[in-house]
Structures are given as C-alpha cells and as structure tokens.
Design a protein around this nucleic acid. Structure first.
Lengths: 234, 234
DNA sequence: GCGAAAACTTGACGGGGGTCAAGGTTTCAT
DNA sequence: ATGAAACCTTGACCCCCGTCAAGTTTTCGC
C-alpha cells in the first residue's frame, strides 16, 4: 500500500475547507468572520479507499472532520478480531477521545471510499473552545448523544439475543432513514462485528426473517421491512 | 416503597453542599468565591438504600453529584432484564445525558446504600458552563473518558469470550486499585449483567481460575490475583 | 445478635450460535 | 469488458454457557 501517494496536504483549496467547516454542526452556527478564522487553522487531507487515517497507538494529532466520503472506526481485540465502533458520515468528526486527555488513539480510522477531511490540531481546537464557549456546548451535545448511543449499544449486546439485536438494528436504520426500505451501510462482516455476532448468523437470521414474512431482501444491501412489530417481538 | 420519607430537601446544611462542590473534579478548580456562587444553586438530597433516584422516562431535572455513598446506573431490556451501566462513587456525577439534549432519561439510578447527593438544575448548570468555560473543558474531559471506557466495554462484550471478559474485568480492577488484591464493588448478579453473562457462569469461572492457580478467592468479594499474565491469556 | 432475605455455589441439561468448509455472487481495478 | 478478489450463503458439527433447581452462606434490618 503506498503510504500517502494520494494524500494531498496544504491549503490549495481554501474554498473546500470553508465548505467543510460550514457543514459541521459544531461550527456552522458561528458568524462568517469567525468561521473564516477557523478555516485558517485547518488543513485539507484526502485519503483513498482502504487507507488508514490513524492507527491505534498513534498520538493524537487533532480533530478530523469528514467532508466527503465515509470513515470506519474500529478496534482490534486481543486475538486480532476487529469490532466496528461506528461509521462517520460527512459532517461527523473524530479524534476527540484523545483531544481532552493526552492519550493515544485506542482505535483505527479507515477510509471506506475516497475521503476528504479537514484537520485541525489539538491546541488550536482547544483555544477555539475557550474563545467561543458555544462550540463547547455543541461538542458536549454531540458527546452526550454518542455516549447515550454507545451505552445503549453495549446494553443490547450484553442482554438481547442475536435475533433481537439484528431486528433492532434494522429498526434503528428504518427510523433514521424514515423509510421501511433500508440500505445497509456496510458489509455483513462489519455489521456482524458491530452487533457482536458472525456474518453467517446474519445471513441465516435474515433468511429466517424473510421466510417468516417480516422482511424482503431486495438485494444484498437493501431490505424492505414488512412487519416491524413482529420483527421486534423476536 | 415510601416515596421520599428519607429524602431531606433544602439548604439546611450549606456546609455539606460546599464540601460536595469542592470534591467534584468539574468544580474543584474554581476560586472559593466562584464555588460559593455555585453552592447557592445546589440542593442537598439524601436517599436510603435501594431507593430509585430517577426513572427511565423521567424528564431531566438536572445534574446529580454524588457526595457520599454509591449509586448504580442501570437499564432494562425489552424483556425486563437489567444491565448495570456503571457505578458512581463520591465525586462522580450523572444526569448529563439529558442535560444537553432535551430528552428523557433512558436509564435508572438507584442508591446502593445511604446516599447523599447535590443537585443542580439544568438551566443553572448551563449558565455556569457559559460563564466559566473552564467547567466545560472539565466536563468534556470527563465525557471523553466515559466514552472511551464505554466503547471499550462494548467492544469487549461483542468480541471476547466470557473467560476473557471476566479476566479483563479483574485486571482493570487491579490496575485501578494498584493492588493484586481486589475487592469486587458489586454482587455477582450486577457484575454478570455488566459484562454480559450470568451469575452462575461467574461463579464457575472464578472457581476454574482458582483451580488453575491464577487467583485466590479470599472471600466472596475479595480476590487475590496470583498470575495476571496467565489470566489474560484466557 | 437473630432470623429472614438476598446472595452465592454446584449440578444437570439443552439449544443457540460460532466455526469450518465449499460453492455461488457481487464488486472493482485495470 | 473481464478476471480476480472480496463478499455472501448454506450446510454440518458441537461446545459454550444460559437456565432451572436445590442447597449453603452471607448480609442486613430490627
């Protein structure tokens, strides 16, 4: 894998960086002049599909804001198995964990396709937090959402059966997309690692659900939910 | 269950409230005068063992700071099984999840013994955040710690075997207490729900570990770790 | 301190689901 | 467009561990 042959660094496209800042919830409430000030402190970076953005064990180099594309955050267990923590969409950010306690990253970030990021270094970000307290409130809100989501996720994996976890995942997806027809945002393997099961089991359960008449598999990644209530009763 | 027969409300003991504020990491860095200002906006509350401090579904009424005693935060799954999310020690706080997004609590808080709390209402807390940005940074640090811990926990439950999870729990405890002799802070039932297994399995695994010579069970709640390395190899 | 209630341990049993394997399908880089 | 690599599905096997039950020990309110 070439190291960063595809990684453009620098400020050649301030326009792009500006757009980047303006779409992020934690910054987009600021005055244009304030945004401009922030834009000056970011760099644009691009990564090709499959490229690792940061490694477990890297020291924190800052805040990563996704501009285009998607980023997969995952961990590796002792025995080398990977667990998908979450997927970043444009407007999401990461790197925060090590921003506030001077620790190393404890997860990996990998580009799921071609990805464009805006990067701000740790010290600059912290001084913006002090200068514009409203940003802190936004970040706190974001953290508290993620915390709630992660705690819910942990509780599910710990207490629910595999059927229920898969059903609940579909339900969440359907709610997010406001549609009874959902598109899985990842492979069976990643989904399995996310909800704590195996790809084979996901295949089997989805087939069962289809045979029971609760869903229809339109294609590998697309599923139509026919009977949500039955689905959630296991 | 009597509703709040044991719950003292009011400001009869400002001294206690002051102490309460002064031991919390998110406030104890402030000037004495600033702390006094904050103390004025808190109320002391006491709960007896087993008393529920807030229910799932309650609307947020503020920030709870533990002064004395311990508080158990747990969730209930669809089928009524409980999962222990975490335990609050003196100096810890909760209620944050709903402080930043106007949502209802999605967990329960229960006094594990006699507990004394300081409570601050949502609006007051938010205005202190704006007035003293340093508090936000502290809260952000705390959130980021909890997020890291929770994500790690979710990954473990999803990917590791039961043996490994129990071993890792003991290892964490030993590290926290800086001692090879650890005291379990909860019952087998709660521990089981926390790490995603059953009380019976915990009993059995601990016996296995002891027979293998890796630990010694001094009493039900006290365990001496004899061979940490072997333990972590499963 | 004492008695009841909660917590813990041990045994037996059964099923859910993880793993390995093999064959079919989709994706993607060239 | 095309071949290789990644992904998905289905089958067979079997073991881990959740559950139920019964007996023992510890905890705690009075």
């Amino acid at each position: 894998m070439t190291d960063n042959g595809h990684c453009g660094h620098g400020k050649e496209t301030t326009e792009m960086q500006k757009m980047c800042i303006s779409i992020v919830p934690i910054f987009n409430h600021l005055e244009p002049s304030e945004m401009n000030e922030i834009v000056k402190h970011t760099n644009s970076v691009s990564h090709p599909r499959g490229h690792t953005i940061y490694h477990e064990g890297d020291t924190s180099d800052g805040l990563y804001i996704v501009h285009k594309g998607r980023v997969k955050i995952y961990r590796l267990s002792e025995n080398g198995k990977e667990q998908l923590v979450r997927i970043l969409e444009p407007g999401d950010f990461t790197g925060e964990l090590s921003l506030f306690n001077e620790t190393v990253h404890d997860a990996y970030a990998e580009a799921m396709g071609k990805v464009e990021l805006c990067v701000m270094n740790r010290d600059d970000f912290q001084s913006f937090l002090v200068k514009y307290p409203a940003i802190s409130l936004k970040v706190l809100g974001e953290f508290s959402n993620r915390l709630a989501k992660t705690e819910k996720q942990a509780a599910r994996i710990a207490m629910e059966t595999t059927d229920t976890r898969i059903a609940m995942y579909l339900a969440d997806l359907s709610e997010e997309e406001n549609s009874s027809q959902v598109k899985l945002p990842m492979t069976r393997k990643d989904l399995a690692s996310h909800i704590g099961t195996s790809p084979e089991t996901i295949s089997r359960k989805l087939t069962e659900f289809e045979e029971a008449g609760w869903i229809r598999q339109l294609s590998q990644r697309e599923i139509e939910i026919l009977d949500m209530d039955a689905l959630l009763l296991v």
